[in-house]
Design a binder for these strands. Structure first.
Lengths: 413, 413
DNA sequence: TTGAAAGCGGTACCAT
DNA sequence: ATGGTACCGCTTTCAA
C-alpha cells in the first residue's frame, strides 16, 4: 500500500477523494470510527469551497450569494451534516456551552433557577453544563477548573456563598482565570468577589416576611437557617433582625437556630429550638424547605399550624401552595432569575460591556394559611397542646403583596 | 514545505515568556484573546517535546520516564496549564461530556437521578449537560441533535417515554445517529427503542403498593396519573390493575384519572374524580407529586387523610417523609439509578460490550401515615365530613418492605 | 523512551 | 462573492 512517490514521505494519499473517512452513508459501518460528514464534504457536494460552506453553516454575517447559500444548505441536508462543535470551539476559542453551578440540583429552588437558565440558553442554541458544589468551596473551585478547560460562553454561580476568606481565595482565583480567558462569570443571589449578579433583595424580603408576622401580633419569632456567614442567610437574618428592631423587639439569641437549608435541617432545628426553652409563637424559616421540615417536626409534637405557631418560609417553591397548611412565604422568581443570569452573560458577550454589579428582581409576600395571630394562651416547649382561639388563618385564595422597592437597581449594593 | 513554525504573521511572539497572557492581573484591554498556556509551552519549559508532554498530561498509558513525567507535571503546574478540551475532543473524536435529558429538572425525582449521574460522572472527570424535553418528542429530538454535535461520551435519557410511534420515529433516528458515531445511549426508566436501561420494576412496585391498600381492606381504589401511554404510567397502571384483579375487584374506569404527573395534576385529578361520582376509599397516585397535589385538593374539601381516604404515592421523594401526613409510597432509589446509568455507559465505553437490555434496582414499600383501613362509614363526593373510626394510621417510624423479586435481572424484560 | 510532524474539522484571513 | 489555506491545541503514528 505504501508506495512513496518521490515527494511523498509519509505516503499520505489524501489527494481529494482518498479520505479514509466514512462518506455520508455508511451502510456497513464495520469500522468503529464512524465519523459524520465534514464541512469539506458538504462543500464538495455543493461545488463550493469549505470557506463558503462555513460562512453559510455557521450563520456568519459574511455576504454569500443566495445561490451558494441554497446549495450549501441542500448539500448539508443531504449529507445529514452536523457541526463538530469541538472543531468550532477550538478555532473560535469559545464553546457553545454555559456552565451552571448550584449547591445541589436536588433543591427545588435551585432547579427552578437552572430551568430558567436552560430555557434561555437553549433558545439561543447553547447547552448547559450543571454541576453541584454542596456549598463546598473546594468542589466549587474544582468544577470551575473543569469549566475552564471547556472555554464556555459563560458561567453562572447559583446560590449564596459562604463568607470565608480563606476558602474563598482559591475560588476567586479560579473565577479570575475564567475571566482572563474572556469567560463572563455571573451569579444568581450572591455578591461576593465582584461578580455581577441578579437576585432578589433578600434583606427587604426577609424584613417584609417578618413584618407580616409582627403585624399579626407576633414578637417572639424564631429564625431558622444557616450558616449565618452564608450571604443569603446573612441577608435574610438582617431583614429578620431589622423587622424586629423596628418594633422595639430585640432579637433573642436563643431563637436563632443555625441549621442546614434542607427539610432535615428544618426538622432538627425544631428539636434544638425547643431544647432552648425560649418561648416563641412564630417561625421565620430562611427557606421553604426549612419551613416544611420545621412544620413536620412541629406537628409530630402535636403543635398546630398556625394555631399554636405561625410559620413563614422563603422562595415559594411549587410545593408551598400544596403543603398543609399552605405556606405563607416570599415568592422569589426562580426561573426569571435564571433567565436574567443568561441575559447578563449575553450582554457581556455581545460586547455591550460587562454587566452591572447587581440587579434586583421583585419579590412578593404570598400570604397563605400558615400564619395567623398568636393565640392568647401562652405556650412553649412540649406544653403545646391547647392552642386557644388563635384567630382565623389568612383568607384563601392567598393574598399577595408585591414589593416594588429596590426594584431594578442597576448598580445597587 | 510550509513549516508550521516559521513565518508567523499573526503576531505570535513566542520567545519563552512573551505570551500576551495574564500576569495575575489582566490590565483590562491588553488584548481580546487571552489564551492560557498550551501544551507546547509546557513542553518547552520542561525541555521536552509536546508529544511527551501530552502523554503525561493526558494520563496516557504510554511509557514515559519518571524523570520526564515529573518535569512535565512541574512545568504544567508552574504555567497553570489547563487542557483545552475542544482540542482534545477534536482529535480523539470524543468529548468528556455526558448528556442527560430529563422531562423537567424541576421534578424532584428527576433531579435526584441527575444528581446521581453527576456524582458518578464527575468522579470520573466528566461533566454533565442537562436538558429538558417536557415530554415532547420534538424537543427531545432537538436536544439529541445538539448533543450529536458535542460528540459526548454518552447520553442518558431519564424518565418514561410516550408510546407514540409517529412521534417516536424521529427520536429513534436521532438516537441511531448518536450510535453511529459510537455514542452509547442509555436510559433510566424507559425501555422503548432498544435502549439499554436501568429501572425499578414498575409493574411489581405498583402492584405492591396497591396490594398494601387491598390488604388494609380497600377495594375502591382510584388511579391518578397519565397519560396512560407513557411507559412508566402504563406499567404502574398495569400493577394497579393486577393487584385489583388479584382479589377479584375489577377496575372501575371512572376511578382511573389521567392527569399530568405534577402537583397541579394531582389537584385537578381530584376535582375530576369527585365529578365522576364513583365512590372510593383510597388513591394510588403514579407519583408522589401527584399524591401531594391530590392530598392538598382533598383537604381543601374537608377530607381527612387517611381517615376518610388513604393515599399511596410512588418515588419516595424527600418531601414524602415530611408531608402531612407522611406519605406511604414506593421508594425508588433515584440517585442509584443515575449512578447505574453511568455504569452502563462506562461499561460500553470500556469495550466491555454494550450494556444489557434492562437491569432492575430494588424498590421498597415505605408505609407511613397516609394509609389506614377504610372507615366503616361509607362516603364519597362532598359528603365527606364525618370519617368514623377508621382505625389507626400506620405505626411510625415507618415500616418498610423491600421487594427483592425481580432484582438484578441482567437481561430481563 | 522520546521527537517530529501530520492532521482532527472548522474558521478567517488574504487574494482573486 | 469565493477560493485557497494557515492555523486553533492536542493526540498519535512513525522514526530515531
Amino acid at each position: 500500500m505504501t508506495s512513496p512517490r518521490d515527494d511523498d514521505p509519509q505516503g499520505e494519499p489524501d489527494g481529494q477523494e482518498g479520505r479514509p473517512r466514512r462518506g455520508a452513508q455508511g451502510p456497513e459501518a464495520a469500522g468503529h470510527r464512524a465519523h459524520g460528514a465534514s464541512i469539506r464534504d458538504v462543500a464538495r457536494l455543493a461545488g463550493l469551497s469549505p470557506g463558503t460552506a462555513s460562512r453559510v453553516l455557521s450563520g456568519s454575517s459574511y455576504p454569500v450569494s443566495d445561490d451558494a447559500r441554497q446549495r450549501v444548505e441542500e448539500a448539508a441536508r443531504a449529507l445529514n451534516y452536523v457541526t463538530n462543535s469541538a472543531a468550532r470551539a477550538l478555532v473560535t476559542g469559545r464553546s457553545e456551552i454555559v456552565g451552571a453551578i448550584v449547591h445541589d440540583i436536588t433543591d427545588p429552588f435551585f432547579s427552578g433557577v437552572v430551568r430558567g437558565l436552560q430555557d434561555a440558553a437553549v433558545a439561543d442554541g447553547l447547552v448547559v453544563l450543571v454541576g453541584n458544589d454542596d456549598r463546598d468551596a473546594g468542589k466549587l473551585e474544582g468544577y470551575l477548573t473543569m469549566l475552564l478547560s471547556q472555554k464556555p460562553t459563560g458561567v453562572v454561580l447559583i446560590g449564596g456563598q459562604l463568607r470565608d476568606p480563606a476558602a474563598t481565595l482559591p475560588v476567586a482565583q479560579a473565577v479570575q482565570r475564567l475571566r482572563d480567558q474572556g469567560v463572563p462569570v455571573v451569579a444568581v443571589g450572591r455578591y461576593e468577589l465582584d461578580i455581577p449578579h441578579v437576585t432578589v433583595d433578600d434583606v427587604a424580603a426577609a424584613e417584609c416576611a417578618v413584618s407580616h408576622l409582627v403585624a399579626l401580633g407576633h414578637r417572639r419569632i424564631a429564625f431558622l437557617g444557616g450558616p449565618l456567614n452564608s450571604t443569603t442567610v446573612q441577608d435574610r437574618y438582617a431583614g429578620y433582625s431589622a423587622a424586629l428592631t423596628h418594633v422595639g423587639a430585640p432579637v433573642d439569641e436563643r431563637l436563632v437556630i443555625q441549621t442546614p437549608l434542607t427539610l432535615e435541617g428544618g426538622s432538627q432545628a425544631i428539636a434544638r429550638l425547643i431544647a432552648a426553652e425560649a418561648p416563641f409563637t412564630a417561625i421565620f424559616a430562611a427557606t421553604d424547605e426549612v419551613a416544611f421540615g420545621a412544620i413536620s417536626a412541629l406537628r409530630e409534637r402535636g403543635c398546630r399550624i398556625p394555631l399554636d405557631v405561625s410559620v413563614v418560609g422563603f422562595d415559594d417553591v411549587v410545593m408551598a401552595a400544596h403543603s398543609d397548611p399552605p405556606l405563607t412565604t416570599i415568592h422569589v422568581p426562580a426561573r426569571a432569575l435564571g433567565l436574567a443570569a443568561w441575559h447578563l452573560i449575553a450582554r457581556d458577550e455581545s460586547g455591550a460591556g460587562a454587566a452591572p454589579g447587581a440587579s434586583h428582581l421583585p419579590f412578593e409576600l404570598v400570604v397563605r394559611a400558615s400564619t395567623a395571630p398568636p393565640s392568647e394562651v401562652f405556650k412553649h416547649e412540649h406544653a403545646i397542646t391547647v392552642g386557644g382561639a388563635g384567630g382565623e388563618p389568612a383568607a384563601s385564595p392567598s393574598e399577595s403583596l408585591t414589593w416594588t422597592a429596590g426594584l431594578d437597581k442597576p448598580n445597587g449594593e
